[in-house]
Amino acid sequence: MNVIQVKDLTKHYSLGTQTVEALRGVSFGIEQGEFIAIMGPSGSGKSTLMNIIGCLDSPTDGTYHLNNQEVSTLEGDELAGIRNKEIGFVFQNFHLLARNSALDNVMLPLKYAGVDKEGQLKRAKNALSQVGLESRMDHQPSELSGGQQQRVAIARALVNNPSILFADEPTGNLDSQTGHDVMQLFHNLHQQGQTIILITHENEVAAEAQRTIFIKDGLIESDIRKEKL
């Protein structure tokens, strides 16, 4: 069963009098439990595709089924609900709230989901132990290393049991060792059955995934599945 099924996605932006076609008809499916990398140079439409798949934006045309639900026609708060329940985001620069503890940061999606306080604490602690940071849950982001901050962000992404873990250049701000550790964490999560979409422009990072989609000029240039070793 496909978690994600997109068909003929297009996205047009109007810049003054000009219309920019960021996506010109993209179709693909992602199966449950896949670990996939999306690659492409800047200006290729990669970011636009990511925003649409991440439910941060809506396509101009085409269809997008997430867990068999048509989401391309949703907007505003409906999309916010989808993001909250179905998608876990991990960003290049972590995007943690600086004045909140690791625990509070991880609890944030649960607050927006309307989970009660007790449930928030339990699930957030659980998520932090999944990334090996339960001992640092009272620390603020400034008291954590870059790798630890990214792991807090991953715990936050996982806390609502999303269908998709969506990572945008997750190792871009980390040194190679810490980056490697974070990638290892992704592999572990993948082995537990988590669907992961990785956005990157680094070949080494993309090589970690089972499948790589290359985007160029708003179209899919190639869609390569690695043979299982």
Binding site: G54, G76, D77, A80, F89, H95, L97, L108, Y112, N160
Partner: peptide, 14 residues
């Protein structure tokens, strides 16, 4: 950016 993050995590307009 904080607002963007909160929205990405599911914060509604309200």
């Amino acid at each position: 950016r904080e607002i963007g993050l909160r929205k990405a995590l599911g914060a509604t307009h309200q």
